[in-house]
């Protein structure tokens, strides 16, 4: 199999901090690799190594078969980078930013201008093209940033949290752009903290935490690892939580968990379970505020793999601790 980029055993330390503790990442040409992890997981560090901005302490990485340290100059011809923090010039206009990049890529001025115009139109920035970037909204900046990394028609594009801070509509726009790039044969490395985003875009996902890959697979495979569907139940009267837990335990054959105060969740093994639960709750006279059958999402994947939620930075516990603590409280 040929990989558009491939990292093996990358280790990177910053003083006492181990940002990457031996990480493997790879994507075949024309696919999207989603790198999913909470704050501080090492996403940006991995991207910076693959973009030749940082040298790894250990391990190797190649892009198009070229080593990112030894053949850095050649690698730079293949890649486009949209960093986590805007990598366009605030004082220049949209056009000036793109033309500068074209010039640095040794395009002739006319060609650089034409390419800038084409990209600005494509990203619906034509009207703002002559304004300094500091007058742009967050979404416009993001789009210009994306445009800037496409000027040279790279084979591999790194997008470090490209939709952070965008509203849902703009996020969908970026997703559309990523999909059309892939349709063009470009390989994309996309980091994100949004499980939904990795699910929507990635062919394969590497879940990373504390500088390690803790799971890798297609979105479907990852979902499979956390099992099948779940049944969520919230009784109207919180005082009936214990009774409800008893009923769910009886129909499911396992103790329910309590992810948030007042709700219970159990894995669903067979389809008759839902009706059985409804009947028994009715017999017991328990009024139900919410009862739903839910497919697992990547949040569940992350929870199962790390023992803490995605929103919680490593070490602060957060959702993970809350879940275990409350399960005990609710189900005891």
């Amino acid at each position: 199999m040929t990989y558009a980029f491939r990292a093996e055993g990358l280790v990177k330390r910053f003083g006492a901090t181990v940002a990457l503790a031996g990480i493997d990442l790879a994507a075949r040409q024309g696919t999207v690799l989603g790198v999913l992890g909470p704050n501080g997981a090492g996403k940006t560090t991995a991207v910076r190594i693959l973009a030749t901005l940082l040298r790894p302490d250990e391990g190797t990485a190649t892009v198009g078969g070229l080593d990112v340290v030894r053949d850095a100059g050649e690698v730079r011809r293949l890649i486009g980078l949209t960093g986590q923090y805007a990598s366009v010039d605030e004082d220049l206009t949209g056009t000036e930013n793109l033309v500068l990049i074209g010039r640095l890529l040794d395009m002739r001025t006319a060609a650089a201008r034409a390419r800038a115009r084409e990209l600005l139109a494509y990203f619906e920035l034509a009207e703002a093209a002559a304004r300094p970037v500091k007058t742009y909204s967050g979404g416009m900046r993001r789009r210009l940033d994306l445009a800037a990394s496409l000027v040279g028609r790279p084979d591999v594009i790194y997008l470090d949290e490209p939709t952070t801070g965008l509203d849902p509509v703009r996020r969908e726009d970026v997703w559309g752009i990523v999909r059309s790039l892939v349709g063009d044969g470009v390989t994309v490395l996309l980091t994100t903290q949004y499980l939904e985003e990795a699910d929507a875009l990635a062919d394969e996902i590497s879940v990373i935490d504390h500088g390690r890959v803790i799971a890798h697979g297609t979105p479907a495979e990852l979902k499979q690892r956390v099992g099948g569907r779940h049944l969520d139940l919230r009784p109207l009267d919180p005082a009936r939580l214990l009774d409800s837990a008893g009923i769910l335990a009886a129909v499911a054959g396992t103790q329910p968990e309590s992810p948030t105060r007042g709700t219970l969740t159990v894995p669903v093994e067979d389809d008759g379970m839902l009706t059985a639960a409804v009947r028994r709750l009715d017999e017991a006279g328990i009024a139900v505020a919410e009862l739903s059958l839910r497919l697992p999402d990547l949040d569940d994947v992350f929870f199962t793999l790390t023992g803490h939620g995605t929103a919680a930075p490593a070490g602060t516990g957060g959702a993970g601790e809350a879940r275990t603590a409350k399960t005990e409280e609710a189900v005891r």
């Binding site: 011809r77 074209g102 890529l105 040794d106 395009m107 060609a111 034409a114 390419r115 084409e118 990209l119 494509y122 990203f123 619906e124 789009r143 496409l150 040279g152 028609r153 790279p154 703009r170 726009d173 559309g176 752009i177 059309s180 790039l181 349709g183 063009d184």
Partner: peptide
């Protein structure tokens, strides 16, 4: 951005490799 239909033209200008 609702009219994102065609991907950017990928053949009009020289690639990085030729220029450099």
């Amino acid at each position: 951005m609702t009219t994102l239909t065609a991907p950017p033209e990928r053949t009009a200008v020289p690639s990085r490799r030729e220029g450099a």
